[in-house]
Simulated assay, not measured.
Amino acid sequence: MIRLGRIDHVCLRVRDLDEAAARWCLQFGLEERARGAGRALLACNDEPCSLELVEGIEPPGFDHVAFELHRTCSLADAREHLASAGVPADEHDGALWPSDPDGRGIELLPYRAPERDTDRWPQHARPSTSVSVGGPRRLGHVNCLTGALGENLAFYRNVLGMRVSDWLGDGAVWLRIDSEHHVMALVDKGEAHFHHLAFDVVDIGKMRDLLDHVARHGRWVSWGPARHGIAGNIATYVRITEEPCHVELYCDMERLEDDHEPRVYPDDRYSSNTWGPLPPRSYFRFDPVAIEWERESRETLGEPLPREGS
């Protein structure tokens, strides 16, 4: 069998590596860890890598999400499991590379033991001479839109071993690999698109500081702050136009017991945001019209968002 240990990083394709690496570090408080062969590795706090940027592959945007295997699951175990499930996977750079039913890239990395005993301490207690103040604590999860919810659920649950946390009606599902409510969410919107990567921040005060900061750099909130009924986290979503996606800043994620029974929430406003409104319809789109409507708050001003392609 296969067992995942944690989410490791998200990889995005960018047009200009120098520009993108500097932008992500400056605007979201990340640190560049390594650079070479058209790639840059960026990290939150003292993580080895949270965000990988790769240059020269069109179009810009999502490339893959990487998961580290649990210490009880070897790369050979994962290879055998994928083969028995009939899932093809390339093997290179010391990792396995399957794809989900929507064609999204997955990297499965072998477990890497901490180099020092202090690396196992709580993050705030680890001695450091290089950690900068101000950024998120870690990469926490990803969210993907899909037009094939059942096929993708089967892949992430049966092939990658994730467990269902909760449902929103029958149109969205949240999946976990440990006690944190989710490491991935899948939302049925009729088509596939990577929606957001999520950075864990210590509390709503840190979220406020980061939002003030990104606003000064011309970013805007696509939705939030919101208190999700499902998962319980406080979340704010920031639009990224260069690599089409959103960044979620979140805190207070629900923790689940090992024997948690998945819940089915009604598909209503309260399940999505106990504090107030549902997101604007532009939040689920990445075309230029939706971005303009969102940037200028045209939906809020009473102008209906045109249908995509109209």
Rank of each mutant, 00 (worst) to 15 (best):
S272C: 12
E243C: 05
I106G: 03
L17T: 01
D267K: 02
V131L: 13
L186C: 03
S297G: 04
P304M: 02
W293P: 04
L168Q: 01
E294W: 06
R23V: 08
E303Y: 14
R112N: 05
H70R: 03
V183D: 08
E58G: 03
T300M: 09
L12K: 01
S179C: 14
L69Q: 04
D267H: 05
L197M: 15
L149T: 04
S179D: 15
L249E: 11
L278G: 09
P277H: 06
L153E: 15
G103F: 13
R239M: 00
C25D: 09
L249H: 02
L41Q: 11
V173S: 00
E261I: 10
N45C: 13
G61P: 13
E80W: 13
P225I: 13
N143Q: 14
H193D: 11
D209C: 09
Y265S: 00
W223K: 00
H213K: 02
A154T: 11
H182E: 15
R295A: 03
N152Q: 15
D259K: 00
D18K: 07
M207T: 02
Y250V: 05
L168Y: 02
G36I: 03
A154S: 14
S132Y: 12
P280T: 00
L256I: 06
I2Y: 05
A235G: 04
R137N: 10
S132D: 10
A231S: 15
A66C: 15
N233G: 07
V201F: 12
C251N: 06
R157Y: 08
E19D: 15
E68W: 12
P288C: 02
S297V: 08
G86D: 10
T274P: 05
R227M: 08
F199A: 12
H181M: 07
G134M: 09
L12V: 04
A37P: 09
R79K: 06
L160D: 15
G103S: 02
R120M: 14
Y111K: 02
I291A: 00
C144P: 08
I2A: 00
R116M: 08
P88N: 11
A40L: 09
L211A: 08
G205H: 12
R15E: 15
T72E: 15
C49L: 12
T236L: 08
P279Q: 10
V14Y: 12
V238C: 05
Y111W: 15
E299K: 00
E19L: 12
S50K: 08
L256H: 05
I7F: 10
M207N: 03
F62T: 01
G5V: 06
A198K: 10
N273M: 07
C44K: 02
V87T: 12
W121Y: 08
G302M: 04
A21Q: 07
R13Q: 01
I57C: 13
M253P: 07
L82T: 00
N143R: 09
M207P: 07
L186E: 04
M207H: 02
V214H: 06
Y283S: 04
E254A: 14
R263L: 15
F155Q: 00
R39G: 06
R33C: 08
M184F: 13
S50I: 09
V187K: 04
G229S: 02
R298N: 00
T118W: 15
